[in-house]
């Protein structure tokens, strides 16, 4: 971390163990009021679409400099997964992987997204690097990211119907479409 610009960016990390789970609010293990699970040595903090942006802003201030990835999971056929008691399971989950280079710390954020309104705020203003990942999640799951600068399909063709990684999107049901060669 020799670069001065980088230092200024992670300057807020010294705030007394901000990333560590605290006792206040939310349950036995909580981070900014959101329940935290620690399975297989990997910490995950759970939230929903409403609490998503405030939590991410708080984590950004905590010094998680890099948003390594954003992806989705469709829990349509596996609704009974293990979640903390406070979390209301929904069909979709947006999973964000954050890294703090300075503290060598990783954190996973799992956000419950309801089926009838699959919209969560975009992280573009916090981590511009989430742009492509969010587009991919939109492309594959149909989860919309509000305030995203360019929410279009990224991997699938522009006129593709349906969201391929949803569990009710049958594999093999759509014939492969080759664009015909003009005569």
């Amino acid at each position: 971390m020799s670069d001065a610009a980088h230092e200024s960016q992670v300057g807020q990390t010294e705030e007394a163990g901000a990333g560590a789970p605290s006792e206040e609010g939310g349950g036995p293990l909580a981070l900014h009021g959101c329940p935290v699970t620690d399975e297989l040595g990997q910490r995950a903090v759970h939230t929903d679409a409403k609490g998503y942006l405030p939590l991410m802003e708080a984590l950004y201030r905590d010094g998680f400099e890099s948003c390594i990835g954003v992806t989705g999971v469709d829990y349509l056929t596996h609704p009974g997964r293990q979640l903390p008691a406070e979390v209301q399971p929904e069909r979709f989950e947006v999973v964000v992987e954050l890294v703090s280079f300075s503290r060598r710390e990783r954190l996973r954020v799992r956000c419950q997204v309801p089926e009838d309104e699959p919209v969560v705020p975009s992280l573009f203003d916090l981590w511009p690097g989430s742009e492509a990942h969010e587009r991919e999640t939109f492309d594959m799951f149909g989860i919309r990211f509000s305030d995203h600068p360019d929410l279009t399909r990224i991997l699938m063709p522009e006129d593709w119907e349906g969201y391929p990684l949803r569990k009710d999107y049958a594999t093999g049901a759509v014939p492969v479409r080759f664009k015909e060669v003009p005569e």
């Binding site: 670069d3 980088h6 960016q9 890099s66 990835g69 280079f101 981590w127 511009p128 690097g129 989430s130």
Partner: peptide, 8 residues
Amino acid sequence: AATAVGLG
């Protein structure tokens, strides 16, 4: 560095 980190 700031750009590179921000862009993931």
